[in-house]
Design a protein around this nucleic acid. Structure first.
Lengths: 191, 191, 191, 191
DNA sequence: GATGAATGAGTATTCATTCAT
DNA sequence: AATGAATGAATACTCATTCAT
């Protein structure tokens, strides 16, 4: 019964593992099947094509982040506290599953006809929410008026991606301090 | 002989144009040839394979950046001035050729045997140089000791990538203010 | 047990509908199941494979025709009357179920190992019977000696198929007059 | 130079051979390539897909027939002479290349999106031209008014197909007499 | 008997790369 | 050097068939 969900989930996890290692384009459908311990054909009982798997991966992760952000948005906290909450969640997730982090940072599909909806959303929505945080903070005087919210949000989202990239490539341990450092930097600058 | 150089350069530029639009994996060698107005076979007189073209693109761009950074390093300037010089150069380049920016931000090849050396270098070396800047600045007391140079460098490099991504996707004009805003943020934080 | 027969018949009818529309090779087993309102697996409780369904369809139709022909053969009628009886029956059947007609005219399977026995029989036996009619008629002087029975039988069978094809493609109403016209033509020619 | 034409023609001929033997759906692209003595990929330099090959086969044969028919149409001959000319040409072609005949008689594609234009045309146009012949002949009083031209044309086209089918299946030699016999039948009937 | 999820052999098609001209 | 037709390895995806429930 929940077998259906489980199989799709099984494929998703196998795909994360394999795609994080070889990249989307170099990942063969058969590798995912092997990793999942199922037949190739089975993949296509749950996903219409390879792209749909990647899309689903992003969909899941995006949902998680948007869930966090919604919860956070409701809270009566200053900008830095809100951001800190989000960063902690995000870095925590990545720490627990570096493969997912790798995919989130690296995959930027180039669709032909049916590109991955969710990748675009992931890369777009999250910065927009951050932008919203900033705008509100400016209204309250928490953040300087001279700051361009669009630019700042792009910085922050980019910085987060950059840190995850670095963590994956060489120093996973930086994820421990990353949130704190990032918040500190945003609060007071480097000096 | 300058003919030789020109043809290679011609191919590089054609590749930038086409790859920025469709991504490396979805770009057919023949499209590059068409864009360059040459025969497919000709590409292979100048590049051993498709990857080598992308590699060459990054090689060129990396060289430019490293050149700037070396020049900047020699100057007797404070950290922020140095960084400002670099950012201005970088954003200027991207502004002049958004296609190049698109590639620099998006392509993160997954090599099998012979992955692109230059992409890895680009993603690695530049942050390291920035890291060096930070370390030096900390020695002089310009930058707080509490700042983790690795994280900060990843932050900066990531933020730069993030802003370029945003510029490409929707608002090229933010490149105008980006350097100034980033420096401001790093100097004093958001508040 | 009549349940057993009914299910097989149900599948046959569903298959006729779907195959007449998409052709044997483009008909998915699952479509037949859907049309029949059963599960795919059920099909295989009644047929060993997809080909066997088509084979069965032809088997049924061939049996019907051979039945008619046997009955007709016994009657003491002249050639044209016999043929008329057969044509009326055949065109009647087709009129009542154009889908069956479509299949009879269009499907000419190319077997690998286990080709459809019945298709071959259908395409072979009926002309042979007609040939027999002609030979007998020649013995009685009803049909000219100069007529080659094999050729004439092929004409007649082909003409019947041709008319059905036309009826299906564009003018089902020609089936009304087809038998009469065909007989007239055979009797006296066009002039 | 005419190499291009020759290669396409080479593929066409190989396809005729193989498809006539195994049928369109059971013919593997690689078999055609093997028969033609070329690489599979080469096929796709000349045809966009397998269907396009079959389409081309029919296109060629249809053109031939329509060419004959146009030439014949211009001549000032009675209906039977015209038809005789056409039949002789057609049966001659088939005799010289039974494989082509086999395809013309057997292949009745079921297209999804992009079905074979030419097959439909072949099955449609030729009967229409014959129909035209009949109508004209009726105006001149050559053919009885009681004859339905559509039915008669379908009869004739079907009879032709029937005789080719028979020739291919068992008695190629009947093609010798086929035209004469069919004309005789149409002229005076069987009796 | 009925089911339908799982299977995996089978194939059309693509496209980077080659090399004879 | 330039060409572009020829190549054929590589792979996503299909779908008839099976079989555990």
């Amino acid at each position: 019964m929940s077998n259906l969900i489980n199989k799709k989930e099984l494929i998703r996890q196998a795909a994360v593992k394999v795609m994080s290692k070889h990249g989307f384009y170099n990942t063969k459908a058969s590798w995912i099947a092997d990793e999942a311990g199922i037949a190739v054909g089975t993949i296509y009982n749950y996903f219409s094509n390879k792209e749909a798997i990647l899309d689903y991966i992003f969909e899941i992760e995006l949902k998680k982040r948007m869930g966090y952000l919604e919860d956070i948005e409701k809270k009566d906290l200053d900008f830095y506290s809100k951001l800190a909450l989000f960063l902690n969640k995000h870095f925590q997730e990545v720490k627990e599953n570096l493969s997912v982090g790798e995919i989130l940072v690296r995959e930027k599909e180039f669709p032909k006809k049916n590109g991955s909806e969710s990748i675009t959303k992931y890369l777009t929505q999250i910065p927009i929410v951050i932008e919203g945080f900033i705008v509100k903070s400016q209204e309250v005087g928490e953040v300087k008026e001279s700051i361009d919210p669009v630019i700042a949000a792009s910085f922050i989202f980019g910085a987060v991606q950059g840190i995850v990239e670095k963590a994956i490539n060489s120093q996973p341990e930086i994820l421990e301090l990353a949130a704190e450092q990032l918040i500190g930097l945003l609060k007071e600058g480097l000096s």
